[in-house]
Design a protein around this nucleic acid. Structure first.
Lengths: 159, 159
DNA sequence: CTTATTGCAAAGTGTTTGCATCTTA
DNA sequence: TAAGATGCAAACACTTTGCAATAAG
């Protein structure tokens, strides 16, 4: 699927969701979705709002928060709370489930995937009799204890 | 170990830590540690401060934050960020490692323990070449989809 | 034309900081 | 008695809310 095809698909999905839920299809909401699906990394409300200010239309922070809520509802984005107060988001259409490893030396966020988390989930569901809908697994580590610093040099980036 | 013995032990550990790090042994710090080790559940800064206000001495929120930082450093407490902005803490001396399942219907927090998380950790360390120091695993679920509501009735508590 | 949505600014919430005062070592 | 810790209040950072103006259906 090309980036353009993905943009079209998520727009269509969002419009369908809005109709179903009797919410209005505003240019602001579609612009925000488009901007989000142009991101390649995690993003936060502030960085998104900065980018939206470049566009014509003057989209306010309140609208960004409002739209993010809708996009979370229809599962087109995922929210992460990586320990700091600042919430991080990422687009989720067609991206496979993954978890995160955060290096506390350089603040870099790595993604990984391990099927055994689902086994733990199933066991926990059986044990507690509570159906699990989603999870958050974050490892916190230190790159400097095992390797040369240049391998992990993005000091104080993102997050 | 009786509760009183635990109190004595953690006080001694904290004092040793303070001496080692050339920090002062103030009555406020010891009172905060004692109050924390009287908690049976997760707590937050606000609830802790409320309880401390009952005591003589008038301990300020700033001192609570300061002391919590020290207690985190010497690993006598653990911090959790359960998705909301409000940070939760729990005492950690002699408590075995565990993870959390949060029911989104009733906000109740369950604890569980699964050794397979360490296998995932080891694999991830090998894969990324980053040494993991700690982790956070949270399952989010819904009790009402599988069982009667009365089994999980503490609506809107804690968190 | 009706009502949801918007932009703005103000209010909230949890945490951090600056500073004068007090207290530990 | 000097460096560090305290209490207070103000500052902060991120998020939510109230409201008049606007625009979607």
């Amino acid at each position: 699927m090309t980036p353009a095809e993905i943009q079209d698909t998520v727009s269509a999905l969002f419009c369908a969701f809005l109709e179903e839920n009797k919410q209005r299809k505003t240019p602001e909401r579609l612009a925000i979705l488009k901007c989000i699906y142009n991101q390649t990394e995690h993003f936060n409300v502030e960085s998104l709002h900065q980018q939206l200010k470049e566009l014509p239309g003057n989209i306010s922070r309140a609208t960004v928060y409002n739209t993010i809520e809708l996009l979370l509802d229809c599962r087109l984005i995922i929210k992460h709370q990586f320990g700091k107060s600042l919430a991080q988001y990422e687009k989720s259409y067609q991206s496979k489930q993954h978890d995160h490893l955060i290096c506390e030396d350089c603040n870099k966020v790595f993604e990984f995937c391990d099927p055994r988390i689902h086994q733990i989930q199933r066991t926990t569901e059986e044990l507690t009799n509570i159906k699990v809908s989603h999870h958050s697994l974050i490892f916190y580590g230190h790159c400097q204890s095992w390797q040369k610093f240049e391998k992990c040099e993005h000091k104080d980036q993102d997050l």
